[in-house]
Amino acid sequence: MGDNGSVWLPDAMSTLAGEVDALFWFVFWASTIIFAMVIVAKVYFMVKFRRTDETYVPEPVEESKVLEAVWIVLPTILTLIVFTWGFEVFVKLNTAPPDSYEISVRAQQWSWEFQYQEGAVSYTEMYVPVGRPVKLVMNSSDVLHSFFVPDFRIKHDVIPNRYTSVWFEATQAGEYDIYCTEYCGTQHSGMMAKVVAVPQDEFNKWIAEQSQDLPPAELGLQVYAQCQACHSVDGSAGIGPTLAGLYGTTRPLADGSTVVADEDYLLESIVNPMAKIAEGYQPVMPAMFSSTLSPKQLDGLVAYIKTLE
């Protein structure tokens, strides 16, 4: 819990989070008060009218029309207030200011890719400037995902074949968790990333750095962020084989044959994962990954794998 979070809600770190929270607390306290009244009445009746005489049969009670009207009209008014209020904030949450900084977000099983207007691409961290509205234009390359940042109180499904968008304006520098909240397969819970909010000048600096040419292995390290859910680099087993020490070894395949893990094999396994299945692993790797990678990125990835001892 940070400085302005509470037992119920995480830190409010976007311009609209406070408005959502105010509404949350209004509904919360209204509900709690009414709930408490019902429970108090219930307990009071339970004690007061408990059965003491087994033969006693009470008379029916004349129902009070006024009381009935009260508990129909009051909740109606309350819910209408809540509805209208919720509607207003909903519209704000869904309408990005026109001067927003736009970032393209692409979701896939099980990673996020963030593309900036300047051409930079990042994977596990989305850099955004503080104090400037940011609009995310999102698209999925396989199944449904959902982009959720609790600290900003924003969430929207990411759909294949269609763009959806959310926007926010971070109020403080810091790192905020991004979750996928639409079930998307084995590593659904591992599909996390972070929003890194930094001051505008720092952001500009970061963007400039990212746009420079990187050595292939370093570019590959960036791309590898998409692979880490299944393929470790420290030798531990995962959904797929570890990449550590892979290059140059002779690999047993599921069909009984073997293959030498040279550059061609690595490239083929990335581009066409079903061609050769390593022994002891399921053929589950989507071919989707490679379809979005440039030749340069693919080469970088192979170069990176070669560096792993």
């Binding site: 509404l23 709690t32 709930f35 509805f83 207003e88 909903f90 969430k155």
Partner: peptide, 26 residues
């Protein structure tokens, strides 16, 4: 009466457009 009431009130909460955006699928 106790448990269902809590279920009902939180249902109202989830029905509020803006709050649901935060609470949906959590």
């Amino acid at each position: 009466l106790f448990t269902f009431s809590i279920g009902g009130f939180t249902g109202i909460m989830l029905g509020v457009l803006a709050i649901d955006i935060h609470l949906h699928d959590t």
